[in-house]
């Protein structure tokens, strides 16, 4: 394989990894605070359609991104209100959010089906990315750099900052955190809103960068893969980064296998790969001795109501 091919493969891996990394980073923070939001897929779709609609209407991609984050964060607040204030079941509410997001995005998007926008491909001037090796460093969409910076920020926030410590304490023992005066519900609301905004950002990668057009159910279940990624990463941001690129490689395998003329596997079987890989990876991580599963925040998915 020539280096040009290798670089083009690397570029598509980055493309597949970035949206799930963004969404999974948000979900990681949400889960660290003790909340399980299964609505990731729905929030990503709402973000994707909002980013597209706003960019298409205003011609400004940054505006599209901001609107996507706001819309998905707003959607996450439905989840927050139901599960945090009304202590509704988190699994059921998250599922409802996904079904809602699929419907809402397709409703908003129906006027945009097949339209295109200028893809948000470049961060740096084209001249910088002319040489293939430089392309690998400077040739990405701004969202790619944002995802990397956010990984570092989330890692720093969770392990080094005071606020991050409080958030983790709430996820590990809400009772104890509450009794020393922290607002469990308040912090969880913030975490859920952050998770929503990040899912919106991840979703907009699909509609603004990967396929700069709108189609129904554009995310094709990637939100669920992002959820699995959080488990795979044992709730650690840097492992999340590695996991996202690993999954990105699996997802693009389909593309490259087709291009390379792999004919012993029907395309449908190649399309199954990311989902099968997710199942395999979840199984492996469950049997791993240093138990990925054991790293789950202790209060994950449990409702909390303050006493008195």
């Amino acid at each position: 394989m020539s280096s040009a091919v290798l670089i083009s493969i690397a570029m598509t891996v980055v493309g597949a990894a970035t949206p799930i990394l963004l969404a999974a980073l948000g979900e990681l923070v949400v889960e660290k605070s003790g909340v399980l939001n299964l609505g990731l897929e729905g929030m990503m779709l709402i973000g994707a359609v909002t980013a597209f609609a706003v960019t298409y209407s205003t011609g400004s991609a940054p505006l599209g991104l901001i609107a996507a984050m706001a819309a998905s964060a707003a959607a996450s607040m439905i989840f927050g209100f139901l599960t945090l204030t009304l202590t509704a079941n988190q699994v059921a509410t998250g599922l409802a959010l996904t079904i809602f997001g699929i419907g809402l995005s397709s409703l908003i998007g129906q006027g945009f089906v097949g339209r295109t926008v200028d893809a948000l491909h470049r961060t740096f001037p084209a001249a910088l990315a002319e040489h293939p090796v430089w392309r690998l460093i400077f040739g990405h969409s701004p969202l790619v750099y944002i995802s990397l910076v956010m990984t570092a920020l989330v890692a720093w926030f969770l392990t080094r900052s005071r606020a991050g410590l409080i958030l983790r304490a709430i996820g590990e023992s809400d009772e104890a955190a509450h009794s020393i005066g922290y607002s469990v519900i308040g912090v969880r609301y913030l975490a859920v809103a952050f998770g929503g905004a990040m899912a919106g950002l991840g979703g907009s990668y699909y509609s603004l960068v990967l396929t700069p057009m709108w189609a129904d159910r554009l995310t094709a279940g990637r939100g669920w893969i992002a959820l699995a990624l959080v488990v795979f990463a044992s709730w650690r941001p840097l492992r999340l980064l590695a996991g996202a690129y690993l999954f990105g490689a699996v997802m693009t395998f389909e593309l490259h296998a087709k291009a390379a003329g792999v004919s012993f596997l029907a395309p449908e079987f190649l399309a199954m790969l990311p989902y099968l890989a997710t199942i395999v990876v979840l199984t492996v991580i469950s049997v791993a001795p240093a138990g990925g599963r054991l790293a789950a925040p202790a209060c994950l998915g449990k409702p909390f109501r303050a006493t008195g």
Binding site: T93, L95, A96, L97, G103, L104, L107, D216
Partner: peptide, 12 residues
């Protein structure tokens, strides 16, 4: 698609 959204709202 409105039907799906409508059904999800019922669950909400």
């Amino acid at each position: 698609a409105a039907t799906g959204m409508f059904q999800a709202m019922m669950l909400f």
